[in-house]
Design a binder for these strands. Structure first.
Lengths: 333, 333
DNA sequence: CATCGTTGATACAACGTTGTAAAGGTCTGC
DNA sequence: GCAGACCTTTACAACGTTGTATCAACGATG
């Protein structure tokens, strides 16, 4: 509870001199510096960040806006963003949108422009051009969907290519009826992964069958299980499934097991996100592994640059990914 | 970017009158109120929370201090705390401690006393009495370990009883060599769950064998797998395992599967936390299900009360739990 | 010795908000 | 017509911090 004033009184100097010591100003007489530092210790002074930021015009916080923390991918990402933000001495406010258009609108609109220095947003329903209106003047870095033509900073992997690689892996295994789970009418990433899926099939000379593309309105385990159940109930069930995230894959694996369908013997399964859960599930999941550390770092760094210079041209960063092959496509599960 | 001053100029009234309108003060002439509201709209005024809080002595934020967001239990809990905090118009700053003593000390010490109104802390290594020194003057609500005798607000389930119920379930299945995974030298919750384990064995007339109590220095999947591997390698392996959280259980199940040991036929497994992951794993996990919604709600409510009245006597709330029986002990997995 | 640049310390104002107190106005009841 | 009560608005100060300007002292330079 000690303020600069208290410390100054104790050290017998002016408030500003204490402020100078605290902020590492060079020209302070050694004698005074010593006394101030002593006073700082005995009072246990801690700067009032609210006041400091009011004066400096910064808040020292950043908002991380994402659908849901219960989704492991976002939980892992959030943890990494926290770490990266700490290096910039940023606190992180996390906001959940539930992935709905309304949730995302409300959240963005409610971000007091004075509460945060900027925001890292992982949108599901909203599109990049909505941001300008909803969060006017707030520096924003967008995660996920890649939309090069929009004037907003962006970090993400090449979703089309990642999906293509994943499905090509299933093709290499000799699978012929390859399904996709996760199509979605309004999600950019879903569209991109679907495109990669189609690309890989085309490259392999395989037809794209509508009945093998399963929609998922959410990307939870339940939705994966439901979609897999529908696929397996079909006349000619698939011999492989590409799921647009690991949760869908986990649900799909479970639905298969409940019907006595073996993974990967009868159906090979590939996920997306490389969550830890997938590495330990039975069978363990083959999955697309985005470099989450790189994503978190890049997002925070980009936000820092944007905050420091609002006029700089927007950047579109592509972070690397890899395909992690595990039991769900390898056969020894 | 508009301030009260701008709005006041536009409406032709004083700054304070605008402030009064914004804060719902009753005695404002209808005519003036109308003009101010109009000016508020055209300027798009949003209060500067930093300044407001500086003046009011509140920050509008609360810190949620937990080990790691990658641990699903904490991710789920964090999401629920976010929801509960929103109802109190609190923003939530999340801090990760990694569960180490140093991490927890550093985090608590670094919580600027001015950054937050209070903190909800889920400690692993620290003990309640450390809090007073580390975060002097900060209202704190503690999650988890139950220590009735300490003067600090607390929310948690009855860990001893929950563990007893879980192990009693294994006893009821007729298991005789029941192991425990998750013993830890410095964790209060570990000690309590271990006590419940011993209690249940004693009630069943079963001996407590040291070689069946496996230590886990972390509570991740990896640690569960390692502990299970050690147990299975023993002379007389267990026919049931009680794991102190779901992650340990997932790791244990995997380690069993890799060695051809069937769950639950050869070894029944019980987890703790009722994470969604456990509901979908193969086999699905029998687990202790704390009422996480109740925990999150109670913690936030308690913090609110503590902030409003720092002198009130500390409360120790016990939230309900249940045992969810699934395939990992039921036999049809 | 006068001048100048450097070093060191301080007073003051300002960031945007709200509590306090006080002042000006209107209304009531006698 | 006047005291008193009540409504309405405002000026001012303050929350804790830091940037700017100023001032004083010092040693070095010409």
């Amino acid at each position: 509870m000690a303020t600069l004033k208290d410390v100054a009184a104790l050290a017998g100097v002016s408030v500003k001199t204490v402020s100078n010591v605290v902020n590492g100003y060079a020209f302070v007489k050694p004698e005074n510096r010593r006394r101030v530092e002593e006073a700082l210790l005995t009072t246990g002074y801690r700067p009032n960040l609210g006041a400091r930021n009011l004066r400096r015009g910064r808040t020292g916080s950043l908002a991380l806006v994402l659908p849901e923390l219960v989704v492991p991918y976002f939980a892992e990402l959030a943890g990494l963003v926290l770490d990266a933000a700490q290096e910039h001495e940023w606190n992180v406010l996390i906001e959940q949108t539930l992935g709905t258009r309304e949730g995302e609108r409300d959240t963005l609109a409610s971000l007091g422009p004075h509460m945060i220095d900027g925001a890292i947003v992982s949108p599901e329903a909203l599109e990049a051009r909505d941001f300008g209106e909803l969060a006017p003047g707030i520096p924003v870095v967008m995660l996920g969907e890649h939309s090069v033509d929009l004037p907003i900073d962006h970090v993400g992997i090449d979703n089309v290519e990642a999906a293509r690689v994943a499905v090509a892996h299933l093709v290499d295994l000799g699978r012929k009826r390859i399904a996709a789970i996760g199509a979605h009418p309004h999600r950019g990433t879903a569209a991109q992964r679907l495109e990669g899926y189609r690309l890989a099939l085309a490259e392999a000379g395989l037809p794209v069958r509508d009945e093998l593309v399963a929609t998922a309105l959410n990307y939870h385990r339940r939705d994966g299980a439901g979609a897999m159940a529908r696929l397996l109930a079909a006349h000619e069930p698939p011999d492989a499934v590409f799921c647009f995230n690991d949760l869908l894959a986990v649900g799909a694996v479970r639905a298969a097991a409940e019907r006595g369908v073996r993974v990967p013997a009868d159906v090979a399964v590939v996920g997306f996100d490389n969550t830890e859960e997938g590495a330990y599930s039975l069978p363990s999941l083959t999955t697309v592994a985005p470099d989450k550390v790189a994503i978190a770092r890049a997002a925070v760094d980009l936000l820092r640059k944007r905050v420091d210079d609002p006029e700089r041209p927007p950047e579109h960063l592509r972070t690397p990914f890899s395909l992690v092959v595990r039991e769900s496509t390898r056969g020894d599960g």
